[in-house]
């Protein structure tokens, strides 16, 4: 189950921000994640690929506790999160305040955007700043505007999300996450619910973030994008890391039969 050693371009990596050990997730009798060890350091960009039902979204969602791990521990800056119940090391309790702190530092962009429909674009981007960071309205507004400008929606600030295209909505969602200045950004199939012609505008924004050196994890079916985006690619199958390596290793020269079979199904992508 242990991921093979990574060959990173740099020989010295900064210490990991987020560390996962022995992660399992059960949904009732369904064993979705079957023991995952993983860590991500500042500046890394990880693309997670795999078939539907492989557990890739569940894995990502465990990292900011959108799903509660059934077993295993997650550590932020070396400090394990949650407290194990006395005598039952598998039963970890997570105080709400701790989860909120993690989520503040580990942002997420969803497949379905999850914008707040009763707030304008600007209010959406300000919400976390005002409610979570207790920032003054004026200051929050300034920062939200900056992020909206960055995703190319500076002109849509007073519009309600319902009036925007899917691509625009997703860019607002990215700006909303960015405004919190997270150390890690998680993207859960950010383009999967978009019409094909809108995929490009969202990927362009993500690429721009990559150029800034942001730490990101991306679950995606866009293998071509993953190739150019990632510093590391993980192929997840049956709830374990089946193959891990550089984009070149995993996507172009996969060693595992299973990875090869998966990639062959994507005939339309090109590097």
């Amino acid at each position: 189950m242990q991921a093979e050693p990574l060959s990173m371009p740099e020989s010295t990596l900064p210490p990991p921000i987020l560390q996962v050990s022995g992660l399992h997730k059960w949904f009732g009798s369904l064993h979705v994640l079957r023991g995952i060890d993983f860590s991500v350091a500042a500046g890394e960009r990880v693309a997670i690929i795999g078939g539907s039902g492989s557990g890739k979204s569940t894995f990502l969602r465990c990292l900011n506790f959108m799903e509660m791990p059934t077993a295993g521990r997650i550590a932020l800056d070396g400090t394990p999160l949650g407290r194990a119940a006395a005598g039952r090391p598998d039963e970890v309790r997570y105080p709400e305040g701790e989860l909120c702190q993690v989520r503040e530092r580990v942002g997420m962009v969803f497949q379905q955007f999850n914008l707040f429909p009763h707030m304008t674009v600007l209010e959406n981007a300000m919400e976390g700043l005002v409610t979570v960071k207790r920032m003054k309205k004026a200051e929050a507004r300034e920062r939200a505007l900056r992020e909206l400008d960055k995703v190319g929606l500076g002109g849509k600030t007073d519009v309600y999300p319902g009036r925007l295209s899917g691509g625009q909505q997703q860019r607002v969602a990215i700006a909303r996450a960015l405004a919190m200045e997270p150390e890690i950004l998680l993207f859960d199939e950010p383009t999967s619910s978009l019409d094909p012609e809108l995929v490009g505008e969202v990927l362009r924004v993500i690429r721009q973030l990559a150029e800034e050196g942001r730490t990101m994890l991306l679950v995606t079916h866009e293998l071509g994008f993953a190739y150019h985006f990632a510093t590391k690619v993980i192929f997840l199958a049956d709830g374990v890391f089946h193959e891990v390596g550089t984009p070149d290793e995993v996507l172009k020269h996969p060693r595992q039969e299973r990875t090869r079979a998966f990639l062959e199904r994507f005939t339309e992508f090109s590097f």
Binding site: N64, C100, F110, N114, E127, G128, T131, A177, M180
Partner: peptide
């Protein structure tokens, strides 16, 4: 459920 998730992912508390 996505509304809860969108808000919680920002670090908002349940009551907020």
């Amino acid at each position: 459920r996505g509304q809860w998730e969108g808000a919680k992912a920002l670090g908002m508390r349940h009551a907020d």
